[in-house]
């Protein structure tokens, strides 16, 4: 009797086909390549893997990648928070436009972004030639890499914060100010705890993208081994050297970062959806 009344789209064969399709696509396109990366990286044995990872140039690439992420993440944390704050808490002409402009780095191909930076800040570029007179070189060195990485990853924090801050409104902050709290105290005690998990989520995404960015960085870095080579660029370089195992060893590091990111992301999502923890009741009288 009950079996006759299915919800819309809940026929068993529809369900089986859709679930089966989703699962096989996931396995073919996502899981198998990930497994292959680690399989290939370790195909010549553990000692080859470690020697590949501990290779001078690989270590340098790891160092540069971490360095770039270390500069990019705090910059975009501050930038994203300030941006989200201004478009959700203030009314000013151009506010809507600004909200749209935030998405430019998502809409533009990273290679195009890299080329634009090269055009502007390169030795023959408008700003670059002027800076060149003072012997400041941005492109083909680490400042250029940081610049394009900041550009590419700039929307993540703001995009996480804006909907949340819009939904929360500013009543709690107003209440804080009425009670005499300074602007800094309001931010630290009221705003920050309310946006904490969204902020961490944004940072995780920013960090993952900053470490993995290829297109924009490859245009402005110049690919100088041991100098301006980040980990993703290094993977390509090794691959072109026909050092397949080495390339996969370096790639496995990036894959490892991706897996850690996923775990952290899942944790933050779980934490975000959880209501405030009940405090233990005060015992005794």
């Amino acid at each position: 009797m009950a079996a006759k009344h299915h919800r819309v789209g809940d026929q068993p064969w529809v369900r089986r086909i859709l679930v089966g399709l989703a699962l096989s696509i996931t396995v073919i396109l996502l899981v198998i390549p990930l497994v292959v990366i680690f399989y290939q990286a370790l195909s010549a044995g553990w000692s080859t893997f470690t020697s590949n990872v501990l290779d001078e140039y690989t270590l340098h690439a790891i160092g540069l990648t971490l360095f770039v992420a270390l500069l990019t993440v705090p910059l975009n944390l501050v930038f994203g928070t300030a941006l989200a704050w201004s478009v959700t808490r203030f009314r000013f002409p151009g506010r809507k436009l600004l909200t749209t402009l935030i998405d430019i780095p998502f809409a533009v191909s990273p290679v195009v972004a890299g080329l634009l930076y090269l055009l502007l800040y390169g030795r023959n570029g408008w700003v670059g030639s002027w800076l060149g007179q003072y012997d400041i070189q941005l492109m083909f060195s680490w400042p250029g890499i940081v610049m394009v990485t900041v550009f590419v990853t700039s929307p993540f924090v703001a995009r996480e914060l804006i909907p949340l801050m819009q939904q929360q409104g500013s009543e709690e902050e107003e209440a804080g100010v009425v009670l005499g709290a300074s602007g800094w105290r309001v931010f630290r005690k009221i705003t920050l705890p309310n946006i904490k998990w969204a902020l961490i989520y944004g940072v995780i995404l920013t960090n993952a993208r900053a470490m993995g960015e290829f297109g924009a960085v490859s245009v402005v870095s110049g690919n100088i081994r041991g100098q301006t080579n980040t980990l993703p660029l290094h993977v390509e370089l090794l691959y072109q050297d026909y050092n397949i195992v080495g390339a996969f060893a370096a790639a496995s590091l990036l894959a490892g970062i991706a897996i850690l990111t996923l775990i952290a992301k899942a944790f933050v999502e779980w934490r975000q959806s959880r209501p405030e923890q009940p405090a233990p009741e005060r015992g005794g009288v």
């Binding site: 009543e171 709690e172 107003e174 209440a175 804080g176 100010v177 009425v178 009670l179 005499g180 709290a181 300074s182 105290r185 005690k189 009221i190 705890p193 309310n194 405030e276 405090a279």
Partner: peptide, 30 residues
């Protein structure tokens, strides 16, 4: 901040992540 008024908001605007006691103490601690 300096007008020293009490204001009760329509939707209470209690600080979600602070306990009842911490909410009440907020003004004094500010």
């Amino acid at each position: 901040r300096d007008r020293n008024i009490g204001f009760v908001f329509q939707h209470y605007a209690l600080f979600k992540h602070l306990t009842v006691a911490e909410n009440i103490a907020f003004g004094l601690e500010s």
